Computed example of a mutant assay.
Amino acid sequence: MVQKDRRFFGKPPEFLSQRSASTELEAEVASALANDGTVDASDVVVTADHGGVTLAGTVASAQEITRCSQIARGIPGVRHVRNIIGVWGSKI
């Protein structure tokens, strides 16, 4: 089988977007939260913008809220963390 370069009317394809630094930072923080054995951050959403990270969602305890912030702050490139995580089942 012969592999051909991908082309569209004789031109190489153009990619409309690349992974931004913010997207990379979101992925790194989310991965660190998922791989940490001390928290269940499966309901935590991570967003990043210019080195600032926002954590939103719910966890099982106030200690896990604190730990999520600590994990995020430990990632290179995170300049500040906004934590709006709540505890499962608590009243707002």
Rank of each mutant, 00 (worst) to 15 (best):
T47A: 10
P76D: 15
A48M: 02
G52A: 14
V39T: 10
T54S: 08
S61E: 05
G37T: 15
V44H: 03
S69I: 03
V45C: 06
G74Y: 11
P76I: 11
G52N: 12
I71T: 08
V44S: 04
G57W: 11
L55E: 00
Q63F: 12
H50M: 07
S42L: 01
N35K: 15
S42R: 13
E64M: 03
D49K: 14
I71Y: 07
G74E: 05
V46C: 02
S42K: 12
I65F: 11
A72C: 05
D36A: 15
V45R: 11
D36C: 13
G51S: 08
G51R: 11
I65N: 01
V46Q: 03
D49Y: 14
G52T: 15
D49G: 07
V39I: 14
Q63A: 12
A60Y: 10
D40V: 05
E64Y: 03
V39C: 01
V39H: 02
D40T: 14
T66N: 03
V45N: 14
G52E: 13
Q70I: 00
A60L: 09
C68S: 11
V59R: 00
G57T: 12
A60N: 14
I65R: 03
E64V: 02
A62K: 10
V59P: 01
N35I: 05
I71Q: 02
G37I: 13
D40F: 06
S69K: 06
A56L: 01
T38Y: 08
A41V: 05
